[in-house]
Design a protein around this nucleic acid. Sequence first.
DNA 1: TTGTACGCGTTATCAG
DNA 2: CTGATAACGCGTACAA
Lengths: 349, 349
Amino acid sequence: MVTIQDVAKAAGVSPMTVSHVINEHPHVKTATRQKVLVAISALDYRVNIAARNLRTGRTGTIGLAVPELDRPYYGHLAALITEAAAEHKLHVVVEQTGATRESELRALALSRNRLYDGLILATVGLGAADSDLLRVDHPVVILGERIFDGPVDHIALPNVDGAQTAVTHLIESGCRRIAILDAAAPEAPHPDDAAPGERAAEVNVSTLRHTGYRTALAAAGIAYDPALVTGVERFTMRGGAEAATRLVESGVPFDGVFCVTDTVAMGALRAFATLGIRVPADVKVIGFDDVPESEYLVPSLSSIAPDHDETARTAVRLLVDRIQHGATGRPAREVVSGYRLVARETTAG
Amino acid sequence: MVTIQDVAKAAGVSPMTVSHVINEHPHVKTATRQKVLVAISALDYRVNIAARNLRTGRTGTIGLAVPELDRPYYGHLAALITEAAAEHKLHVVVEQTGATRESELRALALSRNRLYDGLILATVGLGAADSDLLRVDHPVVILGERIFDGPVDHIALPNVDGAQTAVTHLIESGCRRIAILDAAAPEAPHPDDAAPGERAAEVNVSTLRHTGYRTALAAAGIAYDPALVTGVERFTMRGGAEAATRLVESGVPFDGVFCVTDTVAMGALRAFATLGIRVPADVKVIGFDDVPESEYLVPSLSSIAPDHDETARTAVRLLVDRIQHGATGRPAREVVSGYRLVARETTAG
DNA sequence: TTGTACGCGTTATCAG
DNA sequence: CTGATAACGCGTACAA
């Protein structure tokens, strides 16, 4: 391994001078600079980032931790954040947490974070109950469901409002029996049903969007029918296809479906095609996320489009601010992303 | 920042002993270990990876550099490689190169690589002419087109054979006028057309798959018609849709389309739907890559499925071997991935 | 304008 | 079983 010392020796100067050249400090004679540059390229010298990092405490890199890399939503997010970070001259590296609460906490706590100047953590497994665990001393921005009064900066997706808008759109398109495909296991009670003082069920993407669904129904005077709620094992295409198939096989009539994510909707659309159910003629479908694929599906998928670009930019901006002004200085901020309804063929008249 | 020294002081031992405990060295009395562990958790100490890395030269992390993160193929690849690496107790971080030759070379040469024990580089921009530039001293595995006799370990996709199989499948399905959507700019001459001694045009995914296309046509006695070759600006859905639209508007008759990637095919399918061209009734379509989405499209997309799982596992295995046995010891190896034809609805009778 | 000395936090070596 | 010492490669402060 060729070090800065080797370069110094080769150029006939001190290591310090080499350092000055590398870091483009002004007070180096041009002739000296040239000698050093020649030596650097002759020896193919590269600075040792680990050493520099140890000395300076900065890496110029931020981490992005996402639940799963092979879901369009996160791929898109990663691309946008990479772009936004570049404007701040920061590199982005992405890692996969695995979509469980434990793994997300691990990503957060891992000493590895020392290799990043900051971390953007996209969560699905963390709940409001984990608030305390989010208290870390390095710059972190959480991207995900709503965690009120959390100790870290946090960008919340417009889950409730977005879902309500989606379902309202189905209603306005003429649907009356609207099914929902969302997370399977813990039956999410409607907030209104919770006994006073009782802790609400875990807050996550699914329960929030479920809430929006119920709110929209209620606003339109449509009764909530548990038979129309179908659980999705995982928020994947396969999960969506299986859930949609179960919904159809249950025999319960429905004329609209709100899918918790576009990926789930893609699975559902496929299942409907297989079962001979026409979209949008027989059933209208809407998703959430507006992943790039949605526009190109046949039929193209209506969706709720959070302002991804703005979200990415805000996440990076908040993080950069923490990096520059200290992780624990200012109180935590919460930002809710904007969104818009994108009506496409799956909800066409 | 709490250091190993702080822990040592708190536990009343030397920093060295703390290090022994952290790294689970055997010869530490249980009582001592306990004291240290207590101090560690009391102080919430985390090892400083940068310092450890500086000292040991290992990070336990490998890098994966891909052209673009928001393409299903790379997302899927990243997920599989992460999984494969976990079996070797290695972390994976993914970064985006940007799909240009320069950026890929930069990813390769970057001092940043010192933060990884090794790098898996998925290429699209690099050509055979860059062989020399690939000569680096740290462990690297290239994933991409075929670069014969390159200086680094290399996993090649079965581009030529796979494309030939895809086009042959179209022919066997009854197609006679088969269009191809592939890279736009430099007209790729068929190897047979190159004058002897003349350097072949740049070798990349597109030219290789183009070669497979021509080989399949030739084998079936079908004349190559340049009018059926349509350039795709970028290998995105949008690029595919635009190219397909141009193809149709050109007025040239065709009954089959081979798309250079599944993502391009998704765009093409959408364009055909918009233009009222039925798939597979009017035109049959096949892609390449077999991304997870393909199975769920309507109609589901026939494709060439490289053995992604095996590819990921092999890439990691080769890299681990280099990490353990030195980057420059053994001569470079080239492995070609296996593949299979997946016939779905877009090429159904 | 250039050089010297030291410290960042950790671990390898080797002695006790 | 535990600890002292040195070293990893770089950057900062200060001296020359």
